[in-house]
Simulated assay, not measured.
Amino acid sequence: MLSAVLDLVLPRTCAGCRAKGSRYCGRCLAELTAHPARRLPRPRLPGTPDCWSASPYEGGVRRAIVAYKERGAVALAGVLAEALAFTAVTAIGGTGARWAGQRFAVVPVPSGRASLRARGHDPVRRLAALAARRLRAYGLPAEPWAALRQARRVADQAGLSSAERAANLAGSLRVVGAAKGPPVACVLLVDDIVTTGATLVEASKALRSAGVEVPLAVTVAATRRRS
Score class of each variant (00 low, 15 high):
residue 1 M to H: 05
residue 2 L to R: 15
residue 3 S to F: 08
residue 7 D to I: 14
residue 9 V to E: 04
residue 9 V to G: 08
residue 10 L to V: 08
residue 12 R to L: 12
residue 12 R to K: 09
residue 13 T to L: 04
residue 13 T to H: 07
residue 14 C to G: 00
residue 16 G to Y: 00
residue 16 G to T: 01
residue 17 C to R: 00
residue 18 R to S: 15
residue 19 A to C: 04
residue 21 G to C: 02
residue 21 G to P: 09
residue 22 S to A: 15
residue 22 S to H: 07
residue 22 S to P: 02
residue 24 Y to W: 13
residue 25 C to F: 03
residue 27 R to L: 05
residue 28 C to E: 00
residue 29 L to W: 09
residue 32 L to Y: 14
residue 34 A to C: 04
residue 35 H to T: 12
residue 36 P to T: 03
residue 36 P to N: 04
residue 37 A to S: 14
residue 37 A to Q: 11
residue 37 A to V: 00
residue 38 R to Q: 14
residue 40 L to I: 00
residue 42 R to E: 15
residue 43 P to W: 13
residue 44 R to Y: 01
residue 50 D to K: 01
residue 51 C to R: 01
residue 56 P to V: 09
residue 56 P to K: 00
residue 57 Y to K: 02
residue 60 G to M: 00
residue 61 V to C: 06
residue 63 R to P: 00
residue 65 I to M: 05
residue 65 I to C: 02
residue 67 A to V: 04
residue 67 A to I: 03
residue 70 E to G: 01
residue 70 E to Q: 06
residue 70 E to K: 02
residue 75 A to Y: 04
residue 77 A to G: 12
residue 77 A to Y: 08
residue 78 G to M: 01
residue 79 V to R: 05
residue 84 L to K: 01
residue 84 L to W: 07
residue 87 T to W: 12
residue 88 A to I: 08
residue 93 G to W: 02
residue 96 G to Q: 11
residue 99 W to E: 15
residue 100 A to S: 14
residue 103 R to P: 06
residue 103 R to V: 10
residue 105 A to W: 03
residue 105 A to R: 06
residue 107 V to G: 03
residue 113 R to K: 07
residue 115 S to Q: 13
residue 115 S to E: 14
residue 119 R to G: 03
residue 119 R to V: 15
residue 123 P to T: 11
residue 123 P to C: 02
residue 128 A to E: 11
residue 129 A to Y: 11
residue 130 L to N: 01
residue 134 R to D: 13
residue 135 L to Y: 06
residue 135 L to N: 04
residue 137 A to F: 05
residue 138 Y to Q: 11
residue 139 G to F: 15
residue 141 P to S: 10
residue 141 P to K: 06
residue 144 P to I: 13
residue 144 P to G: 05
residue 145 W to P: 02
residue 145 W to C: 12
residue 147 A to C: 13
residue 148 L to N: 09
residue 149 R to L: 15
residue 149 R to W: 09
residue 150 Q to Y: 14
residue 150 Q to R: 10
residue 151 A to N: 08
residue 151 A to H: 13
residue 152 R to G: 12
residue 152 R to H: 11
residue 152 R to M: 12
residue 153 R to A: 06
residue 153 R to C: 03
residue 155 A to T: 13
residue 156 D to F: 00
residue 156 D to Q: 13
residue 156 D to T: 13
residue 157 Q to C: 11
residue 157 Q to W: 06
residue 157 Q to G: 04
residue 158 A to T: 12
residue 158 A to Q: 08
residue 159 G to N: 09
residue 159 G to P: 14
residue 159 G to F: 10
residue 159 G to K: 10
residue 159 G to M: 08
residue 161 S to K: 09
residue 162 S to Q: 05
residue 165 R to S: 02
residue 166 A to V: 00
residue 167 A to E: 10
residue 172 S to L: 12
residue 172 S to M: 07
residue 176 V to F: 04
residue 180 K to I: 01
residue 181 G to H: 05
residue 183 P to L: 13
residue 184 V to M: 05
residue 189 L to H: 06
residue 190 V to T: 05
residue 190 V to Y: 07
residue 192 D to H: 11
residue 192 D to W: 05
residue 195 T to W: 01
residue 196 T to G: 02
residue 196 T to M: 04
residue 199 T to F: 01
residue 199 T to N: 04
residue 200 L to G: 11
residue 202 E to R: 04
residue 207 L to I: 10
residue 216 L to Q: 11
residue 220 V to E: 05
residue 220 V to A: 10
residue 222 A to T: 10
residue 225 R to W: 13
residue 226 R to D: 08
